[in-house]
Every structure is written in C-alpha cells, then in structure tokens.
C-alpha cells in the first residue's frame, strides 16, 4: 500500500474507497480552490508553474530543499498515480457526472486536440461556468467504461488524478510523448508528480514464446520490458514498472500479468 492508501484507503486502494468520492470533501475550501484553478485554461498556468518548480529540483544549492517542499505540498494540491485498466473501470463505479474533455497535455506539448481526459465529479459544472465555449462531451457510466477500454487498446496508459488527496477528479489517458507528469518525474526525479501504480508486471516464462520483435517491449512507456535473446523471451525490470498493464494487451501468448507491488521485492515500497 502506498502512503495515500494507508491514510485514506481504509484497507483498500485510496481511489477505490467510495468515501473519497463524496461531495462532503468539496466543503474543504482549499480543495474547491484547487479544482477551480485546474479547470479550463487555468490548467495552462498550473502546468507552467509546476514544470518550472520541478525544474528547480536540479538546481545545485536549493535543489534538495525544493524537492522536499514539492513532496510535501503536491499531495495537498494536485498529482496522479498510474492505474491499471481494471482499477480504472472499478473506480468509475464510484464516480458521477462523467465528462470527456480535450487533453491539456497534448494541447500544450504538441498543439494536438484530442478528447482523452475523462473527468468526473464537480468538473462538469465548473467547466460550464468558467469556459462555456470549450468542447465538452457528457458521458454515461457505460460510455465512460467503453472509452477507457478503447484508450487501453490504443496504448494510452491511465492515471488517476486527484485534487488535494484523496479526492479523484479525472482519469487521464496519456502517451509518453505528451504526458507532462511523466516528463516531470523522469526529467527531474519528482516522484509525487506521477506515482507508480499498485501493481507490477510479471512474465510467465513458460508462456512467453520467442517473438521476433516483442510488441510488449515497444508498448511499455516506462522502459521496463526488454528482450533477452539468450532465454528467448522478455524480462521485466520490476523497479522500472509503473503497473499500467498495457503490455498485457500486446502479448499474444497471454504471458504477462499484473501482481501486487508488495509481492515483488525489487519493486516493493518504491512509488
């Protein structure tokens, strides 16, 4: 269990605790303010600010202090954690008012418009109030589930985003090229920008047959899967695996599966 689960999960994963979706949490003025900041084109300022601050982590003298401050403050503001397809579908059960919005990361990093940001809860009302001209697509629960499955098939990894932990507001479906959270984590080592998921990929060596060019390895966004020519199959570096589970859909031999992170010593406790 990650630190969020031990505090807000009640023996479950924090985003699968129905209490964390309650409207009562919106009574917290700090949380309401954070959500208002993030909605619409306010997100542009937010991404600019956070990416500038996380860059400072690499500065020679104050870098360590900035890192400490970011680790402390980010959970009180906004961040995300990678989730598998199964967890994404389950958490949708507890959410309401689904809306599909254009992905801000794709727009800001590549000037690309793609409706890939699945928001829920208070976001719909705030979008209509603050940016009425923005494209917004209302969805039912079934449509939202179908969409998440579709994104998974396309190779988009999922992350659940919170507005002041433990209140989930969005399932982000992103790609390596565009995801600003992932970039902040890899470039600056800021783990709290994108926490690893609760699962880790495992290979069934007997089932993993020799593929000429393993698709699972090229599909892994995090560089955790590599081909071992001596063994004639792939290997997973559990310490690099984020537990998105995209690789499973790429394996024709059904050799990949997800296991809880605590069960793999190499990855246990590494978020």
């Amino acid at each position: 269990m990650c630190e969020f689960c031990s505090e807000h999960g009640q023996d479950n994963r924090w985003y699968l605790n129905p209490e964390n979706f309650s409207d009562k949490l919106l009574e917290d003025p700090k949380r309401a303010k954070t959500i208002e900041k993030l909605v619409g084109w306010g997100i542009d300022y937010y991404v600019d600010f956070t990416s500038r601050v996380t860059e400072m982590v690499n500065w020679p003298v104050i870098g360590k202090l900035v890192k400490k401050a970011v680790d402390r403050i980010a959970p009180k503001e906004h961040g995300g954690q990678v989730v598998s397809l199964e967890d994404s579908l389950q958490l949708l059960e507890y959410a309401r008012d689904f809306v599909l919005l254009p992905c801000a990361c794709r727009r800001l990093v590549s000037h690309k418009q793609e409706m890939a940001c699945l928001n829920f809860g208070p976001v719909k009302d705030l979008m209509l109030r603050y940016v009425p001209g923005e494209p917004i697509e209302e969805l039912t629960l079934d449509e939202a589930r179908k969409l998440v499955r579709d994104f998974d098939r396309r190779g988009y990894f999922h992350q659940v985003l919170y507005a002041k932990i433990p209140f989930p507001i969005c399932i982000c479906n992103c790609e390596e090229r565009y995801c600003t959270s992932l970039k902040q984590r890899f470039a600056n080592g800021v783990e709290v920008a994108l926490y690893k998921g609760h699962d880790v990929c495992k290979v069934d060596a007997e089932r993993c047959k020799e593929c000429e060019s393993p698709w699972c390895a090229s599909r892994c966004v995090f560089g955790a899967i590599s081909y071992n020519p001596e063994r004639g199959g792939v290997e997973v570096d559990a310490s690099r695996c984020f537990g998105c589970g995209l690789c499973r859909g790429a394996c024709v031999h059904d050799a990949l599966s997800l296991v809880p992170r605590e069960m793999v010593p190499q990855a246990a406790g590494k978020w």
């Binding site: 306010g42 300022y45 991404v47 600019d48 800001l108 590549s110 090229r177 600003t180």
Partner: peptide, 25 residues
C-alpha cells in the same frame, strides 16, 4: 511542437494570470 517527436517544447501562457485579456491566453 507539432514536429518534435519527443515532446520537448511546452506552450506556456504569454501573459500573467491576473493580466490576461480573455479566458483564452
């Protein structure tokens, strides 16, 4: 931005939040 295959460039608002003229900076 559109050409960069690694997503290196970020579009950031050119004006401050308080000073922006419209909702679209």
């Amino acid at each position: 931005q559109e050409a960069c295959p690694r997503g290196v460039f970020l579009a950031v608002p050119a004006e401050r939040h308080k000073e922006k003229q419209s909702i679209y900076p």
